[in-house]
Amino acid sequence: MSSFFVLFRKEFKGQLRTYRFLIVVAVFFVFGLGTPLLLKYLHALIPAEETVIGIPEFTSADAVQSFISSLGQLGLVAAILVAMGSVAGERESGTAAITLSKPVGSGSFILAKLAALSVSFGAAIIVGAAGCYLYTVVLFGNPGGLNFFIANLLGALYLLFCLAVTVMYSSFVKSPIAAGGLSFVTLVAIAGTAGLPGIKYYSPGALVSWAENVATAGGPNSWWVLLVSVVLIIMAIVMGWQVFKKKEL
């Protein structure tokens, strides 16, 4: 297990040094602050005479819901962009061959990448959510701390799912672009199933709508979605590891 921590440390340091960590955190922070601000001043930005349908008065629940929704869309794209080269890029450049010629398990190699990416995105969500919460309280009133926390936790789980799928594809193919393309198609398709009757009760894509419901304190809990998402995350890790183990470097 010690090689996992060495690799995790290297991965995280790499994200700091190459500014990927900073960029992800900054993007989430801007969205966190910007979402309640945009809703508050939407009336001012779009004059009433220019709108066909009247813009409603937004509440703190709307601000949080909008932030969670952005997390699902923006987070998906950010996760793919940051994670698509994680394994494929190392195979393509040749760094994986040197690292894996040392006493390093391929499982540790994959897991360390996912763990470091998860920490970065976790930090980004915390910073973005803090900004969103602060501005929502100031501009609209308290949205309810516990619901806000749970909604972000579900959003974080969805991003972990996106990262796991992207890292899995990244270990399947040698080209980061191909890994990104495969991940995008898969994740958009899964997000689409969140609206399909029957499947929506089991699709990880429904995590975002569940989180939105929690944020607005309405709608039922979807425990099957939670369970299926966790199982699929584990499956993505195991599949990525098993396929990567058989790859020639």
Partner: peptide, 8 residues
């Protein structure tokens, strides 16, 4: 052609 982590 040895490849390294160039940020190191």
């Amino acid at each position: 052609e040895p490849a390294f982590y160039n940020w190191m």
